[in-house]
């Protein structure tokens, strides 16, 4: 990691191709800066994320995982919000049983124009993770 990155937590973002990817791209276009140790993996829908992926990320050394959820904008239907919520709940339980602070997994609905909210979310998540994991 570069000298400037010492103060950044490693955050894995699960983002969706049609909804939150455009918002994250637009954050870059608008030069809304956020920590460079925030990495995005694109998936079709946030309700298709497996708990095992999230646990794998923690096991490999990520400080936090952020789900940029489709929310009510999901192109696959209205049940996405409920299902994403359920998988986050299930993963929180698994994290607890593995002695991982559940607050290291966050979720927020990020719509296709939510560039500002995305940047605010990952910045505040970064601060939380630095405070709790790298004080």
């Amino acid at each position: 990691m570069g000298e400037l990155n010492k103060k950044s937590a490693k955050i894995l973002v699960f983002s969706t191709e049609k909804i939150s990817d455009p918002a994250i791209d637009m954050a870059g276009l608008m030069k809304l800066h956020y920590p460079p140790t925030v990495y995005t993996i694109s998936i079709p829908c946030s309700s298709g994320i497996k708990s095992s992926w999230i646990l794998h990320a923690f096991e490999k050394g990520f400080d936090g995982v952020f789900i940029a959820a489709d929310g009510s904008d999901c192109v696959y239907g209205e049940t996405c919000t409920e299902k994403t919520g359920a998988l986050v709940g299930k993963t929180h339980e698994l994290m607890k049983s593995n002695n991982i602070d559940p607050a290291r997994l966050r979720m927020a609905a990020i719509c296709s124009v939510c560039s500002d909210p995305f940047v605010k979310q990952v910045r505040s998540f970064n601060e939380y993770l630095l405070k709790t994991l790298h004080p």
Partner: peptide, 23 residues
């Protein structure tokens, strides 16, 4: 995507942007 998600998003931090692009 190393433009919107690296060079532009981290234009304030060239080292960080390069590290991210590599990843």
């Amino acid at each position: 995507n190393i433009r919107e998600q690296a060079s532009w998003a981290h234009s304030d931090n060239k080292i960080g942007a390069t590290e991210k692009a590599i990843h």
